[in-house]
Amino acid sequence: MTAAVDFRLTDDQRALRDGTRELLAGRFGRDRLRAAVEAPALDRALWRELGEAGFFALRLPAAAGGVGLGLPEAVLVFEEAGRALLPGPLVACQVLASVVDGVATGERIAGLCAAAAGPVLWEHPADCDELILVEGAGKEGEGDRAFRAAASEVAAAPLASVDPLTPLARLTDFPRTAPLALDTSRLRREAALLTAAQQLGSAARTVEMAVDHARRREQFGVPIGSFQAVKHLCAQMLVRTEIARSAVYAASVTGDALEVAGAKLLADEAAVRNARDCLQVQGGMGFTWEADVHLHLKRAWLRAERWGAARELAELLAEGLVTGAEAESEAGVVE
């Protein structure tokens, strides 16, 4: 008999993942990545190509010109984007594909900001045509609101981004004249999950980079990967990645808010810690600007602050333990 609980990818999902990896390898290989580091303005032609490939329209119904797929497929695509360090407001354009005209096809670029206690950061301010601002506590029915404005109407102060591939600005004024009817809690949840998927891809990639280096680099006459001290670093990198993968894939299927929070927490940890360990394995070479590992680390830091940071996610999950929502949530109990 066949049982349904199955984490394996379907043939279609595998094809989608492989196709995305191929597309990104061809259109955003290492040369393009390094060029983008020096000139981070987005490549509009590439963006349209991503649009044509269904990158943003993935979850729109076929009748609306979309591909009609779901969150699990979007997660696979975003994992690949994370691997490749593909820059741009990808999460924003994916979750806003049905909200802002032209975003689904890649013709227009929309940014997405969440009001926060600290500075409100805007990714790729020079590349966005429109900006959506979400305000409120992040909980349903608690004053969550969303507004839309043309990028030209928004006032922002420049900020030296820690991530060379993600220019940032600090929002100073936003015209709250065009309220949007949006399910903001769902939007936050999806943005968190897709961000986690990118973190997962980055974490998986830095394991490969570390292992590749450990196999080739020789010291004391042998590959450094034959030393247990190095092996164990690499093994823990894989463990973090696979734990995060279980959490992210499961959350993409259930859509459960607490599972998404847990997935983001674990994927953030995996991406940041793995980049750090990869740097350690690469040694002095890893500390150079020329190596790619710092690009993974810096982007991982940036993503870890977006759509739920560890301090917020852990509180949310703790609250879930008390209310019993954790026990009741789908995880483990499929009634």
Binding site: R8, S246, Y249, A314, E326, G332
Partner: peptide, 25 residues
């Protein structure tokens, strides 16, 4: 302490999912 417990909630949910994954494999 709260955040520690919250982190463990994520951890054990993920471990449960990994168990299901291993079993389905």
């Amino acid at each position: 302490l709260r955040r520690r417990l919250g982190g463990l909630a994520a951890e054990f949910t993920a471990l449960w999912r990994l168990t299901q994954w291993n079993v389905s494999e």
